[in-house]
């Protein structure tokens, strides 16, 4: 077949409006999901963070939920909530919530007990300890959770195709059904990657701006980039805190 290029600038130009619409859908869905997830996960982590058993129960439940694949979750939610945006949004919130929750808890557990003791010694009440010591100390972990959640959400939105609302995934699927039109799939893929990269960079910059006290440390910025800040600090210096898991469970 003639003319099925992997990429075509002409196609991009001719379909700029569709591309913009789908990207906008994709972006809004991602931002909304991560924002809702963060608004729930961070307070929840602060609430259970000090109770070891409650934290264990929350993390256990979270990792069981995380084992359920997105496709299955969308498929279960769609018939119950109606086909379209809602089941995708709810599913995305669930996954983002688990990621942020796990990272925030790890961050809270890594807070230096001496700092907590010092704060209590200074007469801080529980609320003050939480707001003025724990939260700032866990902030890099929260940011890394937000970044991880955002990047995975951008990729996950595409699976929403299965219930008819996949943002850029919709373009990929249309391209596939439209005689394997490669340029359409490639363009949508690149747009996804670009969106993930831009959002990740913005969050990284925001995190850096919000934690000025870390800037002097050589690996402060890099550490926030991956999975496990709590462990990373132990292993700092090698520059290779790889976390042990791509999807987040087990390890």
């Amino acid at each position: 077949m003639p003319g099925n290029p992997w990429f075509s600038l002409e196609w991009v130009r001719a379909n700029a409006d569709v591309l913009a619409t789908r990207s906008w859908q994709h972006l809004l869905l991602t931002l909304e999901a991560v924002a809702i997830a963060a608004a729930v996960a961070v307070p929840l982590a602060l609430l259970v963070g000090r109770r070891r058993r409650a934290a264990g129960a929350v993390v256990g439940t979270a990792s069981v939920l995380y084992t359920v694949p997105s496709l299955a979750l969308f498929a279960v939610l769609a018939p119950l909530l109606g086909i379209g945006r809602t089941p995708v949004l709810v599913g995305l919130v669930v996954y983002a919530l688990l990621v942020i929750l796990r990272q925030t808890l790890a961050g809270l557990q890594s807070v230096d007990p001496a700092a907590l003791d010092a704060a209590r010694g200074l007469g801080y009440g529980p609320a003050q300890v939480t707001l003025r010591v724990q939260l700032p100390a866990a902030l890099p972990a929260v940011v890394s959770g937000l970044r991880l959640a955002t990047v995975t959400t951008v990729a996950l939105v595409t699976v929403g195709v299965v219930v008819g609302y996949g943002g850029l995934g919709q373009l990929m699927f249309e391209g596939f059904r439209n005689n394997f039109h490669r340029a359409e799939i490639t363009t949508a893929t690149l747009a996804c990657l670009l969106m993930a990269l831009v959002l990740d960079t913005l969050l990284w910059a925001a995190g850096r701006a919000a934690t000025p006290w870390l800037r002097g440390r050589a690996d402060g910025g890099r550490r926030a980039g991956h999975g496990q800040p709590a462990r990373a600090s132990v292993r700092a210096g090698t520059g290779t805190d790889l976390g042990a898991d791509g999807r987040g469970e087990a390890a």
């Binding site: 991880l148 990047v151 995975t152 951008v154 990729a155 996950l156 595409t158 699976v159 195709v161 996949g166 995934g169 990929m172 699927f173 391209g175 596939f176 490669r182 799939i185 490639t186 949508a188 893929t189 996804c192 990657l193 993930a196 990269l197 990740d200 791509g246």
Partner: peptide, 11 residues
């Protein structure tokens, strides 16, 4: 993490 699995399968 950022690369959609669906995209790779379809490509």
């Amino acid at each position: 993490r950022a690369l959609p699995t669906l995209a790779v399968i379809l490509l």
